[in-house]
Design a protein around this nucleic acid. Sequence first.
DNA 1: CCCTGGTCATAAGGCCAGGTTATTACCCGA
DNA 2: TCGGGTAATAACCTGGCCTTATGACCAGGG
Lengths: 312, 312
Amino acid sequence: MPEPVPGGPLSLRVPALAELELLLAVARLGSLGQAARALGISQPAASGRLRALEQRLGVRLVRRSPGGSRLTDEGALVSEWARKIVEAAEAFDAGARALRGRRDSRLRVAASMTIAEYLLPGWLVALHAGHPGTAVSLAAGNSATVAGQVLEGAADLGFVEGTEVPAGLDRAVIGHDRLLVVAARPHPWARRRIPVPAAEVAATALVLREPGSGTRQVLDAALAPYGGPAAPLLELASTTAVKAAAISGAGPAVLSELAVAEELAAGRLTAVPVAGLDLARALHAVWPAGHRPAGPARDLLSLTRRPRDRPS
Amino acid sequence: MPEPVPGGPLSLRVPALAELELLLAVARLGSLGQAARALGISQPAASGRLRALEQRLGVRLVRRSPGGSRLTDEGALVSEWARKIVEAAEAFDAGARALRGRRDSRLRVAASMTIAEYLLPGWLVALHAGHPGTAVSLAAGNSATVAGQVLEGAADLGFVEGTEVPAGLDRAVIGHDRLLVVAARPHPWARRRIPVPAAEVAATALVLREPGSGTRQVLDAALAPYGGPAAPLLELASTTAVKAAAISGAGPAVLSELAVAEELAAGRLTAVPVAGLDLARALHAVWPAGHRPAGPARDLLSLTRRPRDRPS
DNA sequence: CCCTGGTCATAAGGCCAGGTTATTACCCGA
DNA sequence: TCGGGTAATAACCTGGCCTTATGACCAGGG
């Protein structure tokens, strides 16, 4: 059982989003009063909020002067960390809005779990920035249900992983996903520069998602010619749990590159080169055959389409 | 009073961290009451919070039953988005704690801005997980000041970018950073598979950080043999502003790969292959010559060291 | 059979965080 | 010297959110 958070819940130690937004607004606009107006609060409220923020952190974030306010060096650093939170909150909001508007939305999207988790929020933020009026609704499921909803007309646009697309749907490749074998630094595979043979991967106990999950199916199929995957070291029900296990050194894991991009960049995990395995799968947008996406669906699609991948 | 932001500030539309933490705790522990205890609040408070969260989102997140509570499909999706926010908040907290504890900390770290922004919070989270007692203080600055602080004994461990390390310091390579030329999809460079010649990069107006910034210095030096960088298309004071400009299609930009890892993974930006330019720079940990890091400094160092890079 | 221990929801009461308005102080440029 | 910008302080008030107390429901065991 993981620790129930030493030092109390995060929410007591991390400033509220409103305070972080204020800091960013001050950084952007150069004055407390303007930032206050931008957030729809009074100037004294902004002054108080910022003072509370500085007191909680024990650091001076802003150099006030009659004529404006400017971030200190520490303030710049803190505001970058804060920006990460705010960006995650924007993605959350974009996703939540889409999830909320059930029937009456102008653009109904259905997406597979992986795409809905990692890609869609970013697209929706961009869509909202470019086409503010667009209301989107979202249904998430596996590839089969997504295809079904698009076929039935319950969704205007679908996003699926995997290679087979049912008849009756047109599709466009919007990107590629790839399962990666990843390992934390203590593991020998993390030092490999010479690719690990596929047969060795197939014979090794790995940290995996549970059977039935999309990534597990792809892996099982890819490893079948080599004797199938060995009995898993751990079988976990969520991508995050698999990541955590791999990072803590339980053993090598197999995950979508979308899920581990950040860990790879920060060096918490290393991609293990593998020889003779094709774990790539295309990401497709799908829509009813013949009905080329128009209006909002076209807007969204144009945000997602990669230039080198043309629709069929 | 008007609201200049469409839909009002994020803080009014995104649930507070406490609510997101609760959702994750429920997902992890399987019951409202246990989650409440883990967060140190009463069970009715948890019930109320969760109800408020579901009402705000307009979606049922949890299936209650006598015997426990389980996430719905939408709940699983929302909790993944929430997890992103909470992880960003954990990184913020780790950084903020380090920034706050000024003198009395057991481990004093000095780091360059880029490392302090993108890498250090993750390390501190990991350090806190592995060695809960460690108190860390952080000073951020450019590479020269970091080296100075370590030399003076004002910091136990330093992290710098760049190749030159002053005498009197031992160092270990802990990773590599690389400036990338990035472009959004509309730009022709985003479709290039054949590398762009360095001379063409040097002749093209780019979106850049302001002169004096670390990344700008590296770029200027690298492009000098080819006639130096052309007059910038835009000169912006923050990494985020440069990213935003590039994503919105202003033109190609040059940024640290640490700063754009997420945008590359999500396809919002594309790395442009460039021929004949070496924009890589090693990331070093540094400490006073002869005094091999011990205790907390060693703990932190072991979290950051990549296996294929051995200390001198 | 019913008691016990687990789940969760509802009700009533109280506290305090954070907002508001009004006012003061400061600085700069016209 | 006066207006328009900056930010800070004071006094007041509202309402969100927590607490405790209680009730309904369900499963398992004596």
